[in-house]
Simulated scan of single mutants.
Amino acid sequence: MMMVDNPRMLALDTSSQVSSVALCQGERLVAESALHLRSTHSQSLLAQIDDLLRAAGWGPADLDLLAVVTGPGAFTGVRIGVATVKGLAQVLNLPVVSVSSLTAVAMNLPLLRRPVCVFVDARKKEVYTQLFQLHDGFPRPLNQARVIAPHEALADLPLDSCFVGDGVAVYYHLILQHGFEPSARAPACCHPIQASRVAALALQDYFKGLAQRPEQVVPTYIRPSDAELNRQTNNVC
């Protein structure tokens, strides 16, 4: 697939209850929408994409590139986002850039000089977490993404870390108990993933030649699903 200098991009994230979709042309944001849903994203995502394209005066054929958050996050939400983008990419013959949810959350604090610890609630008394340092507005990982009990994640972090992600509110009491200052918590508006930030990350990777064919795009779960755990248990028995 031929690289475009100023690609028209559709970027989306469905890894949490917030469904975020953005249209960008190169670095310029054209349109963006975010919906906080109680129902699954499958009931509204295509309509959300269609409405945004219509508002921008674009059609699917105008797109040059797709970007999607592949996880970690809510298993069903991640699957819906990945499947939707793969389907569009196959029909439109477009390349896809995969973006980590943890990197996208860290991108919400682009000018911070302190280390950024992303805390995303993984349920089961665990968090998806990763530590980043921001360079020129973009997150650079300082360790591997992992799913872990929050107190274990907090034990080896620099005390000047700043926390961002939907798990921060859930485990804020633990953050304080481990000696972090109240100012270590990012404002609430910084916790959800914004598709426009996903697009900015994807554009960087696109120009690095890291775009994929649709069949190469897979979810990143980090831990196995309940169904997989049940199969493993049944096999052992």
Rank of each mutant, 00 (worst) to 15 (best):
Q48Y: 08
Q48F: 00
I49S: 10
D50L: 05
D51L: 06
D51C: 09
L52S: 01
L52P: 04
L52H: 00
R54C: 08
R54N: 02
A55Q: 13
A55E: 09
A55I: 04
A56S: 03
G57F: 03
G57R: 01
G57W: 05
W58Y: 14
W58M: 08
W58G: 01
G59V: 09
G59H: 10
G59Q: 13
A61E: 14
A61M: 10
A61R: 10
A61W: 02
D62G: 00
D62F: 06
D62C: 11
L63T: 14
D64A: 01
D64N: 13
D64K: 02
L65T: 14
L65F: 12
L65D: 13
L66R: 04
L66G: 12
V68R: 07
V69L: 02
V69Y: 03
T70V: 13
T70Y: 00
T70C: 04
G71I: 01
G71V: 02
P72R: 02
P72C: 04
P72G: 00
G73C: 08
G73M: 08
G73F: 06
A74G: 11
F75D: 04
F75E: 11
T76G: 08
G77W: 02
G77N: 06
V78A: 07
V78S: 03
R79D: 08
I80N: 01
I80A: 02
G81I: 04
G81H: 07
G81A: 07
G81N: 09
G81T: 01
A83R: 04
T84M: 01
T84G: 01
V85C: 03
V85R: 03
K86D: 05
K86A: 10
K86Y: 07
G87T: 03
L88I: 07
L88E: 11
A89M: 10
A89L: 11
A89K: 02
Q90K: 12
Q90C: 12
Q90D: 14
Q90S: 13
Q90P: 01
V91L: 06
V91C: 01
L92C: 12
L92K: 04
N93E: 12
L94G: 10
V96A: 12
V97D: 06
S98P: 06
S98I: 07
S98V: 07
V99M: 00
S100Y: 05
S100I: 14
S100A: 07
S100Q: 08
S101G: 04
S101D: 06
L102G: 05
L102C: 05
L102Q: 08
L102P: 10
T103W: 07
T103N: 09
T103S: 14
A104G: 05
A104W: 11
V105A: 10
V105L: 14
V105W: 05
V105R: 13
A106M: 13
A106W: 03
A106V: 11
N108I: 12
N108Q: 14
N108H: 05
L109I: 09
L109M: 15
L109S: 15
L109W: 14
P110C: 14
P110V: 10
L111W: 13
L111C: 14
L111F: 15
L112S: 14
L112Q: 15
L112W: 15
L112M: 11
L112Y: 12
R113F: 07
R113H: 08
R114T: 13
R114A: 15
P115A: 07
P115W: 09
V116K: 15
C117I: 04
V118Y: 02
V118T: 08
V118D: 01
V118E: 01
F119A: 05
V120N: 09
V120G: 03
D121H: 09
D121T: 07
D121K: 00
D121M: 06
D121N: 11
